[in-house]
């Protein structure tokens, strides 16, 4: 148990140090901020031009602000296994006494911090530039919702990322999941706009509940009113982490059997 905890901590620290090995902190910050701002601006302009009252610019801006969490919490985590393969360090990780799941859990923990920072900045952008009114939002409820969303999304990212242990790369899958949320999770328009056959897919993504909960908090809901969604996301998160644990063990064995650990 202690070994696993130390493994998670060490992995998170390595992730922190390697973050700035190639791209410096200044450039990295510009990258995070510009992506969040321009993605939001793009959809705000589209919604402004479309003039659909069901998806007004403020609605779209708030959805995109929450969705910015996906870059780190889902894509960053999904890419972790693929990145190790990419640089040829996957076999080395497997030879350490810490289970692979805990190594990637540490990376996920670091990505959560980045994700929470990104979403905080994005909410500030949405409020400052795009008319999102957060004045009535309860800070405690907002914090609880964002933490629960982040927890569930990291779990979701770990489930997807586990595939990267076996496959050549998790980049393709990660890229699809990264942007699919913009379409399926009520980020840019209500889920009711989707064709009926596509709607069940929305409920697999934790982002759907996160976006809804943040909209409720922005509209004045307190912790009690959003507790249902928060518990749902925490439950989903636990389910995703358990599934990720089993999948990491399964794909680890499969990769060892097929000799695909160094395949990229």
């Amino acid at each position: 148990m202690l070994r696993d905890v130390l493994g998670v901590k060490a992995s998170a620290l390595v992730a922190l140090r390697s973050q700035f090995a190639i791209v410096g902190p200044g450039l990295w910050l510009i990258q995070i901020l510009s992506t969040a701002l321009f993605q939001m601006w793009f959809f705000v302009l589209v919604s402004d031009f479309a003039g659909d009252p069901g998806a007004a610019p403020a609605y779209v801006a708030l959805g995109n602000a929450v969705s910015s969490l996906t870059y780190s919490a889902v894509y960053g985590v999904t890419m972790s296994a693929g990145a190790e393969k990419h640089i040829g360090t996957m076999a080395t990780i497997m030879s350490t006494p810490t289970r692979m799941f805990y190594v990637f859990l540490g990376k996920g923990a670091y990505q959560s911090l980045i994700g929470l920072f990104t979403v905080a900045v994005s909410l500030a952008f949405a409020s400052l530039f795009f008319g999102v009114d957060l004045s009535g939002a309860d800070p405690l409820a907002l914090a609880a919702v964002l933490l629960a969303t982040c927890f569930a999304m990291v779990g979701f990212g770990m489930v997807i990322g586990s595939v990267g242990v076996y496959l050549r790369s998790s980049m393709v899958l990660g890229s699809i999941v990264l942007y699919l949320g913009l379409l399926l999770c009520g980020v840019n328009f209500p889920i009711s706009y989707l064709p009926e056959w596509l709607r069940p897919a929305s409920y697999i993504f934790p982002l759907t509940y996160g976006v809804q909960a943040v909209r409720d908090v922005a509209a004045g809901a307190g912790p009690a009113e959003v507790s249902g969604l928060v518990w749902l996301m925490l439950g989903l998160g636990i389910l995703f982490f358990a599934l990720a644990y089993a999948l990491f063990i399964y794909f680890e064995r499969l990769a060892l059997k097929r000799g695909s650990l160094d395949m990229f």
Binding site: F43, A50, G51, A55, M171, V172, S175, L182, N188, F189
Partner: peptide, 25 residues
Amino acid sequence: PQWVIPSIIAPFIFTTVTLFLFRHA
């Protein structure tokens, strides 16, 4: 050919979202 997906998925989803937003127009 799988590597084309990460490059084109963003504009494809962006356009599809745009089509949903423009559907009334």
